[in-house]
Design a protein around this nucleic acid. Structure first.
Lengths: 355, 355
DNA sequence: GTGAAAGCGCTAACAT
DNA sequence: ATGTTAGCGCTTTCAC
């Protein structure tokens, strides 16, 4: 097990050039794979390079070319299976396109998000994918896109920001879910979201600036109203982010004087806590409480009963967002595109007719 | 909404220096936060910088300093909640230490892993965290560590590679899980792992080179043998990677002429498929089949019955591995450390006395 | 405390 | 096809 002698620096193009007896430019051409070199010289240089164990320095390359070959991704919470699937999709497409991804986790904190964006830019990423944590505060994103750095929004559209965006078909999905519930006779339906407003109360739909959530709530309310259900706005529960917060909110809701007979959860993490809360309180699903959740997390088929879900093709969402970004990086200049991938309501057994 | 005039390049230290009427070196000193500058000049430079909207170029900085402020992470599958939790831990600690993480997904493919490592090095990451996909093939890792680039192994130790490693207490965990089963009268216990051998058969424990898995199987076998159970090696099921593969393997196992009365799953993805297979075949857990799984995935509390698990502090695993790496980057030169974080067997209701 | 100048490893004109 | 020469934006001696 021999240790390489403490060589000061790593092998550079210049070293290879010298050893091969060619100019730096020629060596660089073959090592960098550009320009034209004779096969003979190419072979020679390549051989010398391997024998010297030459390793290209991407940093230096990026410096001169201006392209870093990386795309920056900032998500709210990589632990949320929604995001991990999306990130997998992004990473796969990125790799295929010759990019690597720098991942940052905002923890849904706007300051962390801003810092992340700043760092990512400083590292000269070729493009940015972000799922905005806060829909009130996106000057940093606006600035990014104005500065000419390609930016694609993941899952959460910002209507006032005209950039490429990939979301799921939120409004239709919410409408379907709500309609299923109403058809079964439910009239006290709660919609629980991690989204929040400044004062944690929802007086006006405009307070919800995150388009995905607003669309869902719009769909929810529209169907409720059409069914003659009053004040559906009050049925929206805000701020369910984090395990504890979800758990607390779920219990409070189910123990209230007028508990809902059905709940729509905005993601699988929320649904899980609702499920636990119901069980904890001795409530049966679906007899005492019907439940539908967004995101077809793998465990939703394995509970008793299995849960009716809005299936979102999350991996594909990630693939798409990455593909769009790479197109932009490669110079696409069309107007901002908004791609919405379709969802599908998978009916299982967590919804029953209202007692 | 005014668009900034197409300025060719971004603002550099030189621009700020010129505008502030100081030398490039001075401007660089305050902007880079090193050396000594008078408060007066510092204030002036800072002011000019913000008014010019100066953004440091980390790439250039890295070029000259040799430090990139990034750590490379390569995991098998970011969609696996085990890894997403670990990555979250890594990302959090990294951010705290002023590092950002470049994430790559090997898909448990050794060639992808090698490519990832190569790319990461080319990008001059300050250190590397990897969960090795293949325990036979790690020359690339050996080389990394020999070249002086800090490397820490995540969850999967490579005994023949002397580098910092963080794992869970695999052997003890497996022993406990097995003991619980045996105490309940089970003698036909299968252990299912994603790990694999060249010919997909397990004739010799030495064929399992991934230390974490080998330790688990060792623990499993030791307890089995002590209980007088013969040929426990045959009870180990290999190659359960990927949803379909897991499903197929699970069904085949449960439908075999001599199905096990209990199963230990090596991760929560496997357990989920076992659970589904059992349900699919009309087998009751725990009456017809007892189940214990590694990894306390959140859904394991919510099934009927809730599942007995080996709780692994995965987030902490990530934190620890990142902390170790950062220590190394900062110059720690002690011998390779192997930290094993303790696990805990959480008994729930998926294990019953053998009928 | 501040400035001048030399590089880091690479690519990109521009010659030859 | 190959060599020469500048830089990219920053840090870092080394003078002053």
């Amino acid at each position: 097990m021999e240790q390489p002698p403490m060589r000061k620096l790593s092998i550079t193009v210049a070293d290879v050039a010298r050893a091969a007896g060619v100019s730096k430019a020629t060596a660089a051409r073959v090592l960098g794979g550009y320009g034209t070199v004779s096969d003979k010289v190419r072979a020679l240089v390549l051989e010398t390079a391997t024998s010297l164990d030459y390793r290209p320095n991407e940093l230096a390359r990026s410096m001169t070319t201006g392209r870093s070959g990386t795309i920056g991704v900032v998500v709210g919470d990589i632990e949320n299976p929604f995001f991990s699937s999306a990130v997998r999709g992004i990473a796969d497409v990125a790799r295929m396109g010759g990019y690597t991804v720098i991942l940052t986790n905002s923890g849904e904190d706007i300051d962390a998000e801003k810092a992340a964006v700043k760092t990512l830019r400083a590292k000269r990423v070729d493009g940015l994918i972000v799922s905005a944590a806060n829909s009130y505060d996106f000057d940093h994103l606006q600035e990014i896109s104005q500065s000419g750095c390609p930016l694609v929004l993941l899952d959460r559209a910002l209507p006032s920001l005209s950039v490429d965006t990939v979301t799921t078909d939120d409004r239709a999905a919410a409408e379907q879910a709500t309609a299923v519930l109403i058809r079964k006779g439910h009239r006290d339906i709660a919609y629980i979201t991690a989204c929040d407003t400044k004062d944690h109360r929802l007086k006006d739909l405009d307070d919800i600036r995150t388009a995905s959530v607003r669309l869902r709530i719009e769909g929810f309310m529209a169907v409720c109203s059409a069914a003659g259900i009053s004040a559906p706005l009050d049925a929206v529960q805000l701020g369910a982010n984090g395990r504890d917060s979800c758990a607390k909110l779920s219990r409070a809701l189910l123990q209230s004087p007028t508990p809902p007979s059905a709940i729509i959860a905005s993601d699988s993490l929320i649904a899980l806590e609702v499920f636990k809360a119901a069980r904890h309180l001795g409530l049966s699903i679906p007899d005492d409480l019907s439940l539908i959740t967004f995101h077809d997390a793998d465990w939703t088929t394995v509970t008793s009963p299995p849960i009716t879900v809005v299936r979102q093709p999350v991996y594909q969402l990630g693939e798409t967002v990455a593909a769009l970004l790479i197109e932009r990086i490669n110079g696409a200049t069309d107007l901002a595109r908004h791609i919405v991938v379709p969802t599908e309501l998978i009916q299982r057994s967590s919804v029953s007719a209202k007692a």
